[in-house]
Amino acid sequence: MKKLFTTSVLGASLLALSACGESEAGELTVGGKNFTEQFVLSEITAIYLEENDYDVERSANMGSEVVREALENGQVDLYWEYTGTALVNYLDQEPLAEGEEAYEIVKEMDKEEFGIQWLDMAELNNAYTLMMRSEDAEEKGIESISDLADYVNENPEDITFATNAEFAEREDGLPGVEDEYGFEFADVSQMDSGLTYQALNDGQVEVAMGFETDPRIVDFDLVTLEDDLTFLPAYNGAVTVHEDALETNPDLEELLAPLAELLTSEEASQLNYEVDVAERSETEVAREWLEENGLLD
């Protein structure tokens, strides 16, 4: 029943999009997934395109598979995707930690197999990360996972680590991190993903796994530790465009390049904070960001 329901929703969503049809020059449908970061990225892109004389239709709030299929079918013209998602979910490849390498592979494969063009890759990386409270990390002199490994090896009983079940078991998660960096947590506490941030903020643990662009990093004054050996899989964001839309609107790549240049993980985390924590609208936050970065007149 669950599979039937999912398929029905997917079909209904794509049917609703079918009226969009193929874009003409100067007309674009901007898609997006159904979580805060995607709402903001989609709105930034839509507003920026409108300010550059494009007629934009918005089709955000879709599941990952739905918006991807819509792009493949030309029912949306572009949306922000993540290298790790495309690499594993759509192209059946193994995850990669090196962001540029992952980007080049998805860029080449998507163009050849699906007619999808990847524009410039942003530094924005919605990947797994290890976090600490800012004051605790500063007090212990920990800025990177290598620093953490040294500290744990010297003080094995001082650190409790919070993680969700998936990261605890993935070979490119906790087991791989410990193996790559040469240490092992003596005390690991498993919990739901959303609880790791609160446990860290409340002082129940000293280190926790999270995601680099989560707004609670800003809200709780946490720091992310540098993955200095480049082990954790990359999930860099980039605008993906159907080849027909790019052919019809050849200026898109150059026009959208400043967005990729400016969107970092820190910026994304702050944008997500403004929506989720400060409870501002995606449109207000997106327009303010564009204005602050000199992209709107």
Rank of each mutant, 00 (worst) to 15 (best):
E254L: 11
L246K: 02
E253F: 02
E243V: 13
R216A: 04
L225Q: 04
L222P: 00
A238T: 11
R216E: 14
Y235H: 15
L229S: 14
V239H: 11
R216V: 04
D227R: 04
D251Y: 09
E212V: 08
V241K: 00
E226Y: 11
V218C: 04
N249C: 07
D221V: 07
R216F: 13
V218P: 01
V223S: 01
V218E: 14
F231K: 03
E247A: 15
L252G: 00
L222G: 00
E247L: 08
D214A: 15
D219Q: 15
G237E: 01
H242N: 15
E254T: 15
T213N: 11
T213Y: 06
E243I: 12
T224W: 00
D251E: 15
T248R: 14
Y235S: 03
A245R: 01
V218T: 12
E254F: 10
R216D: 12
D244K: 14
D228C: 06
F211S: 08
V239M: 12
I217F: 02
T230P: 04
D228Q: 10
G237N: 05
E243L: 09
G237I: 02
D227L: 05
E247Y: 08
T213W: 03
F211Q: 12
E212C: 12
G237K: 02
D251K: 11
E243Q: 15
N249T: 09
E247M: 07
H242A: 12
H242V: 11
T248H: 08
E253H: 02
F211P: 00
A238N: 10
F220G: 00
N236T: 09
A245K: 01
H242F: 05
E243P: 04
F231Y: 15
T240C: 14
L232A: 02
D214Q: 08
D244R: 13
N249P: 06
D221G: 09
P215G: 07
P215N: 09
T213G: 04
T240G: 14
F211H: 12
L232D: 02
F231Q: 06
A234G: 10
L222M: 14
A234W: 03
D244P: 01
N236I: 10
T213Q: 11
N249S: 08
T230F: 13
E254R: 10
A238L: 12
F220C: 01
L255Y: 06
V241W: 00
F220W: 11
F211A: 05
T248L: 07
D219K: 12
A234E: 06
L229F: 13
L252P: 00
A245Y: 01
A245L: 07
L255R: 07
L232P: 03
E243A: 14
E247D: 14
P233E: 09
G210N: 03
D227T: 08
T248K: 15
Y235E: 05
L229H: 15
P215M: 06
D228M: 09
H242Q: 15
